Simulated scan of single mutants.
Amino acid sequence: MTKSPSPHTGSYLGSLWMIAAAVCFTMMGVLVKMSAQKFAMHGYELSFWRMGFATLVLGLHAGLTGGNFHTKYPKAHFYRSMVGGISVLMFFYGISHLPLATAISFNYTSAIFLAVWSVIILGQRPHPLTWFALVIGFGGIVLLLKPAIMSSGITPAIIGISSGAMAGYAYLQVRELSLLGEPSWRIVFYFALVATVLSAIATTIQGWTIITWEILPFVLGIGITALAAQLMMTHAYKVGRKFMVASLSYCTVLLSTLYGFVVFDEVLDILSLIGIGLIICSGILAGMRG
């Protein structure tokens, strides 16, 4: 039996890759919010451009490198991709209607909900540290929900937190697919493909925005930064120290808070800041037992 590598082993370069990924994730969020405000583009079509770009690039790369698209588990891929796709739609809706840092923080509750789903669905017995992480995590959510509802309304707040819950469930399904022997690229490709189709259907119902030369750099930027962030994050976990890399992933939340203040004049109250801090601590603690 092969022994799993220690989470304390790995190169410190992994930390730099994760910081770079956090910058790209933050820029994606900024471009999504700017597109929504500047061009009145809704979250469905922004999700389409984000996921469509990933589908095209990953599909071409797999085809050129001899990747096998055949899978023995089409239903598992479909369910995972549907849940992940809905999570992305909710996430982009949250970015468009909530303060940037709030929307990002809600999405980052996925680590908290992953632990919850593991208990409910898999019947796992959480470590005491995980229970502590869940308690402070949900405390942070409660603190963040109140000002979010006050400033943006209950619908964006509920959709925002739901994006984190759905993402946590999707990550649980990713684990299951990985245990079945499915390669990471195939899991991501089918997720991107199904999410692209899902967002295209939703956009057709809601209405498309004509892509002009002024809009084009924004939608391309969303696709490029999102894919670059995903690749950098994957590489960071591959070569870096697991706990350190997982902790640094929350730089996205901190950078989003800064960018929200500088670019969009979003000033968070003390309750929101405390709530964000608790969510970050909870995610790090939950990840230590992952």
Rank of each mutant, 00 (worst) to 15 (best):
I187V: 13
T130K: 14
I112R: 01
Y169L: 15
L134G: 03
V174C: 14
E182P: 09
L129P: 05
Y171T: 07
L143Y: 08
S152K: 12
I120S: 05
G140N: 03
W117L: 00
W131Q: 09
S162K: 05
I141V: 15
W131S: 10
L172Q: 13
L134R: 02
G140V: 06
A115G: 09
R175V: 12
E176T: 14
K146M: 11
L143K: 03
I121P: 04
G123V: 01
I161K: 01
V174K: 12
Y169I: 12
I112Q: 03
T109A: 02
G181M: 08
G123L: 07
P147A: 07
G137W: 00
T155P: 03
Y108N: 00
V116H: 10
M166L: 15
L143C: 03
S184E: 11
I161D: 03
L172S: 09
I187W: 06
T155K: 13
G139C: 06
G168M: 08
F132W: 07
L179V: 10
P156A: 09
R186L: 15
H127S: 11
P126T: 08
W117M: 00
I161V: 15
H127N: 13
A157T: 09
E176D: 14
L180D: 14
R175K: 15
V142L: 14
H127L: 11
L180P: 13
W185H: 13
Y190L: 08
V188W: 00
V188F: 11
A192I: 01
G164R: 04
I158D: 06
W117D: 00
W131Y: 14
L172P: 06
S184W: 07
V135D: 07
H127K: 11
F132Y: 13
L179R: 10
A167I: 02
T109S: 08
P183N: 04
M150Q: 12
P147C: 07
R125W: 07
F189T: 01
G140I: 05
Q173V: 07
P128Y: 12
G164D: 06
A115E: 08
E182H: 10
I154T: 14
A115M: 08
G164L: 05
M166C: 13
M150G: 04
I120T: 05
E176S: 15
V174P: 12
G137V: 00
R186E: 02
A192G: 03
Q124E: 15
P156K: 04
Q173F: 08
R186C: 02
Q173I: 11
G168F: 06
G139H: 02
Y108W: 02
S152A: 15
M150E: 13
S162H: 01
G140W: 10
K146P: 01
P156S: 09
R186T: 02
Y171W: 11
W131G: 10
T130A: 14
S118I: 02
I187C: 07
I112E: 04
L114F: 14
P128F: 10
W185R: 12
G140K: 02
R186G: 01
V174Y: 09
V119P: 01
I149M: 14
Y171L: 10
L145K: 04
L193D: 04
L180N: 10
I187L: 09
K146G: 01
Y169H: 10
Y169M: 15
A192V: 01
S152N: 13
F113K: 11
